[in-house]
């Protein structure tokens, strides 16, 4: 799935990485607990989260992710957006709640992917 399809499905606004919406992504995870992202994520390229601080971007960078979707209409501060631009990440914000955002992406073919310990 291309990131621009995620934008359409979630009626999302692009906050960073507007030039990278043609990037293909194959799996995603939804998580607010960054410790768990670090513990279990293996190959997920998209992180859906309601957590809204610079550590979200650093965690995504550590896990080689390509795109962060802030759900529940959350908009991170400019420092977070700048950090994402610096690392080539796409940042989206959507009014969808976590459950429905994940559901829409999954239903349209964006898989969960495998996790560590699988």
């Amino acid at each position: 799935m291309k990131i621009k399809t995620i934008v359409e499905l979630l009626n999302a606004e692009v906050l960073a990485g507007a030039d990278k919406l043609d990037t293909d992504v194959h799996s995603a995870c939804g998580c607010d607990l960054l410790s768990d992202v670090l513990a279990f994520v293996k190959e997920q390229a998209v992180l859906l989260t309601g957590m809204c601080n610079p550590q979200v971007v650093r965690t995504a960078v550590m896990m080689d992710m390509r795109c962060i979707v802030f759900v529940r209409g959350k908009v991170p501060g400019q420092d977070v957006i700048d950090l994402a631009e610096e690392h080539g990440l796409v940042i989206l914000t959507s009014d969808e709640r976590m459950y429905s955002a994940c559901g829409k992406l999954y239903q349209n073919g964006l898989a969960a992917g495998s996790v560590i310990d699988d």
Partner: peptide
């Protein structure tokens, strides 16, 4: 409240 402190740090480092 920032998404850390779940008690996974040291186990993750070991893992």
């Amino acid at each position: 409240s920032l998404g850390f402190g779940a008690g996974m740090g040291l186990p993750n480092m070991k893992k």
